[in-house]
Amino acid sequence: MKYVLMFAETEEFATRLEAMDELEREAAYEAVMRWFAENSGKITHHAHLAPAHTATTVRLDGGEPVVTDGPFVEGKEVVSGYAEVEVADLDEALKLARSWPACPVVEIRPIA
């Protein structure tokens, strides 16, 4: 089955990342690279997104499309990247999500 793991950051996590020194940040990135390398057989596609303040939202539910600055939901948790994975079932996807070494929230969605 195919799933998308959506990685979400929290303000707290961003602050912590900000406060890291060069070496710590390098180690954090390395852990992420290692995770992708170790699971490369299951990951079919992945991307890191630019920060939420670069988002632009288009609303089509009114008459004319309305373009606004920012993400479509303002919240404490912001999607910062995703990985599409191909695994046997939800348990295997959960196992991948559990071992994710970076941002603190992962949402798992099956691809319809």
Binding site: M1, Y3, A88, D89, L90, D91, A93, K95, I108, P110, A112
Partner: peptide, 14 residues
């Protein structure tokens, strides 16, 4: 069905 919740006994580590 849709999310692929498996029908099996979990592995020892789970």
């Amino acid at each position: 069905a849709v999310a692929g919740v498996p029908y099996r006994i979990p592995a020892a580590d789970e």
